[in-house]
Design a protein around this nucleic acid. Structure first.
Lengths: 227, 227
DNA sequence: TTAACTTTGCGAACATGTTCCGAAAGTAGC
DNA sequence: GCTACTTTCGGAACATGTTCGCAAAGTTAA
């Protein structure tokens, strides 16, 4: 049978570059100039090939970013999971949030229920720890997924809002928090006025997450709610 | 004094179009072909002017979308606010979510803590109702803002995740929910396996929101937690 | 050696949002 | 009528991600 696809030497034109080299160069460029400056053409030039050549090694720019993110997350040390289920969930969720906050563009790529389908196994412990914590608390598998999804929504929202706010600020058109609101129409909003900016600058993720997790667990298992 | 800016006849070349006409045409195009097909050049052609001319009437495409969103939200009827503070918050948040779900691109523009700074007064009741509900429950203004922000994160996250998942599916590359996960590494995840897809298709926003709101209010005012 | 096949490289081209700059078309003052 | 001034118009051009088609460079089979 001549079905053997590639007996020993590989066929085709020998490659000038590789996915690994492309990813390494991309990481270097991001380190040097920030991810906003990473363009396909610049990356190709730096690698030393034509721009369109990259598309033989990656599927798209999103695909490239996804590979970079997987590499980045893979290097995060998995924290020792706390024994208390609730704390395990909080720890895992905080790790997800920190990973995304460091690479804000990641959320753009990842914000999909397919989190699970996009990352490779080195990042799965984040999902697993949440599911495990929920299960240990007494949740059914289905309830555990619901717990994860709610946490995921909250986390993605926080990261994206934070990233966009920061970008807006850095691009020179921050928000005009109005001091011209009509107190008779929107009294509470008017009372806060421009103080909103200062309030919105505070990081409320930890408290919000803790509140959400406790509530989700209490809801899933009422016995824990009122002894 | 010759300071009068424009006594009667306005100066300058007479405009061929107006922002109102541009917005109306944009709405029509979106209605007909969906917002993905709305490009600056197409819009300009449809209006009957050159593409760059649009930039004399709008600041950017994001600015255009923001105007469209304001118009859209302005047409949403403000529901009769329930008397119970908690229900008022839930109603307002659900209205926000529904408004964004109908126009998924909106979240891309809006996902910033500057929600408040970007919309006009016709949409402010959504924010106001949340703040009012929190205040009536006994929250301080600062706590009320925290309540709003947590709800906002959860809502933006849900809308964005849902929108992206749908887009991925419609573009032909849905998620490969893996059935090859290593049960010894990620037991709970492996146990769920491909069933994740079906679970992620369920709408859990209402329950998640209710849980979150109750928890946020309970946290802000412990007296309400355990009588 | 020759022919078929396979993989990679790359220039040209396209669609998109956006900026630049000069032309067009009106009014105001003389 | 002529000269400023003001506002709008729009073609050219740019950067970006991406597709297409073909050339280049290797292996395998005859």
């Amino acid at each position: 049978m001549s079905r053997t696809p590639a007996p020993h030497g590989r066929t085709g034109r020998p490659p000038l570059t590789s996915r690994a080299q492309i990813l390494a160069t991309a990481r270097r460029l991001i380190d040097e100039d920030g991810w906003e400056k990473l363009t396909i053409r610049r990356l190709a030039t730096e690698v030393g090939v034509g721009a369109t050549t990259l598309y033989h090694h990656i599927q798209s720019k999103d695909d490239l970013l996804l590979h970079l993110l997987n590499h980045h997350i893979g290097q995060i040390e998995r924290p020792q999971p706390p024994s208390a289920p609730r704390d395990r969930i909080v720890t895992a969720a905080t790790a997800m949030r920190d990973a995304l906050t460091a690479w804000p563009w990641a959320a753009d790529v990842l914000s999909a229920d397919g989190f699970v389908g996009l990352l490779d196994e080195s990042a799965m412990w984040m999902v697993e720890d949440v599911l495990a914590g929920a299960a240990d608390h007494g949740c059914t598998p289905d309830q555990s997924v619901d717990v994860f999804r709610s946490i995921w929504y909250f986390t993605v929202g926080e990261v994206l809002v934070r990233a966009r706010s920061a970008r807006r600020e850095s691009e020179g058109h921050p928000f005009a928090y109005r001091d011209d609101l009509d107190p008779s129409q929107v009294p509470h909003l008017a009372a806060i006025g421009t103080r909103w900016a200062a309030l919105a600058a505070r990081d409320i993720y930890p408290e919000g997450l803790a509140t959400l997790v406790d509530a989700l667990l209490t809801r899933a298992d009422p016995r824990e709610g009122r002894p």
